[in-house]
Design a protein around this nucleic acid. Structure first.
Lengths: 212, 212, 212, 212
DNA sequence: CATGAATGAGTTTTCATTCAT
DNA sequence: AATGAATGAAAACTCATTCAT
């Protein structure tokens, strides 16, 4: 059914997820794809090509629906709720792809890394903009827009760490719960010292480490 | 001033943080510690020993103050707020140690992994218990105790990804903001379907993947 | 003419014979086989695999004709004489294989060692049975069956230590001489204290040290 | 009780016996002697010094009583019987020393090897001379003096491979049995082709491989 | 006497990749 | 399309030995 190239991609994803990019050898990939090592190079360039392709897919599959959503749902509160649901559901249903996407950026060489980070930043910007709009509209109150963005993203990303389809709660329940928690968080009020919620210059992040 | 052994440990930590355990060679560690590869083995057993030692320290340095705190602060809401502040501050001030501790478990062999996970589980249990107590006391309302624990932990862990001492906000500001957001999240109310907040059997997690 | 794999095997045998297994590096093996070290691993699993393969061949090439012989020659005296001739000739003509087979067992890990020792024990059993039968038939008289077996085997094994095709005596002469000496030894009479030749429980040998 | 130096020597002997010279590390020797690696070098020069010392002792302890014996027992048959008893008893009671002495010559560098081989050759010469004298006196008949010497030596050397003090037979019984078998072998008669027993030029042995 | 510290050269094995067939 | 053969470079780790203290 599945093409050989696709079998290779899946084997690589499975292994990158389980052992990490550096911890995975191409021999193991070839073995799990059921072909010889030499044949593997018919379908893929280098090991890093494989990773980049996976990373790009990971980011795109998140960014595209997020963009669609951002262009459709006008109410900021609704928009961020939908983003949470989307993020949670993808991270639950595509654990491997999402975690590799979140984790293995450091293994990419600068050029490729930049390409992937551009997508990630675009994705993050959608979240941040939604929150910022909500704050402007008075619908959302948080101590700091950027901080809330990071907190929310990270919190939802965690789902990929522990979700299993056979758990106590259904994915719909989990998703709903995260939306509820996110909504509460986004009504946490301004900074306790009374200063207005910031939307100013970003936190200066360490290189290559924008919150996944 | 610093002992050679300590220099080795620090070099290893720095590199594991930057490149990951699998991506780090002992040659680089030795080089950064300013000794020969052979000398390195005078201070360290194996590369994995080095990792385990770091991981145990990472977990212990979090667990010990958390336990102290749990034994001291009786009010659940206060307790979880203090846990949040502790977690955020450590993850900001010991980025490297914390991120390696959160990330590299998969590189440990089963026996060592078990030892580290025991500490991690104990730490998580403290959080969960605080939240569960708050729910019982009516002080906290969340859709699900376990879910809230994971969400909160993950959200605070993220700080290690982006914090830098030269950022726009001071660590105290960040810490306070996270406490605020956490408090809001913990008042998010019960599940939307009206069912009581669960404290029942845990989510069945995938093996070795309890939320960091 | 010879396949690369075979060249590797021969180089290994030559070196194990000359320097011992522990004294031989894979670099030297690769060098003598005319390939790179990495290529060597295309043909061989580990260095120990190479040794085991050689050891098994060594034992099999002795055991198989011995079994054939045991099933054919019914007269015990004749049978043991044929065994002596076989043993001497193989140890002369395949010095390297035989000596490595006799010497390097200790370098095998337990599992592999057991496999090789099973063959060796089977071979020894053929000798012992031949002698025991001869004693029963009154054709052979020795102080002790087991002792005579060990003595005879060891005496013939020694040929591999000194035989050279350019020596004073031809292999046929040597072989005949050993048969003569063996026959004499097997008529040495019972124990001097008059007790009957033993065929009872074996000498308790030290572990892993049955006479080669 | 035992001096440190002696403890080192014994540890080395035990390990050389069990794993061979090449298979033994000085760290293991130091460890088994209960001192540090650096301290070991206070008592011993190099690892090879240790081996040579052991080898020389091994040969001397055999050669000295053999020489005494050769100067005392005039009857060739008696002399060879006593040599057999001596060889068997030493190889049983000093298994480790004897086997290392027989096995590890190849690990010595040329100069040291020559020194050890000189002793070994002297020892062998005593055997050969005893047999040759017996042949001249008509007391002994063998197909070939040299061959008989090698066969006899090798047969007795084997005792070190399997002897254990807790075996079925006492050392005295074993020794007596070997004397019996040796005597029989030494009456095996001349070569079957009727040619006179040789005492001529030696077999041309391969380098460094005179029968142990 | 004794040893912790140090190391250059060595060990076996695996790496990602290429290429002729 | 597929692969057996090949490899230089690197992996983690051990070696026997020296030396300042």
């Amino acid at each position: 059914m599945v093409s050989t190239g696709e079998r290779v991609r899946r084997a690589a994803l499975r292994l990158f997820y389980a052992k990490g990019f550096e911890g995975t050898g191409i021999r193991k990939i070839a073995e799990q794809a059921g072909i010889s090592v030499a044949s593997l190079y018919h379908y893929v360039g280098t090991k890093e090509d494989l990773l980049e392709q996976i990373m790009l897919e990971s980011m795109t599959d998140l960014l595209t629906p997020a963009q669609a959503l951002a262009g459709t749902v006008s109410d900021p509160g609704e928009r961020i709720a939908d983003l949470v649901a989307l993020h949670v559901q993808r991270h639950a249903q595509h654990r491997q792809l999402c975690r590799v996407g979140d984790t293995e950026i450091r293994s990419l060489s600068p050029g490729r890394r930049a390409r992937v980070m551009a997508l990630r930043d675009a994705y993050q910007a959608i979240w941040e903009e939604a929150i910022a709009s909500g704050v402007e509209a008075g619908e959302i109150t948080v101590p700091d827009v950027k901080l809330a963005t990071f907190a929310l993203l990270q919190m939802c990303t965690g789902v990929a760490h522990w979700y299993t389809p056979r758990g106590r709660l259904s994915l719909d329940e989990i998703s709903a719960a995260f939306v509820t928690m996110a909504r509460a968080l986004l009504s946490s009020g301004a900074r306790q010292d009374g200063s207005p919620p910031a939307s100013g210059p970003p936190l200066r992040l360490q290189a290559g480490a924008s919150a996944p």
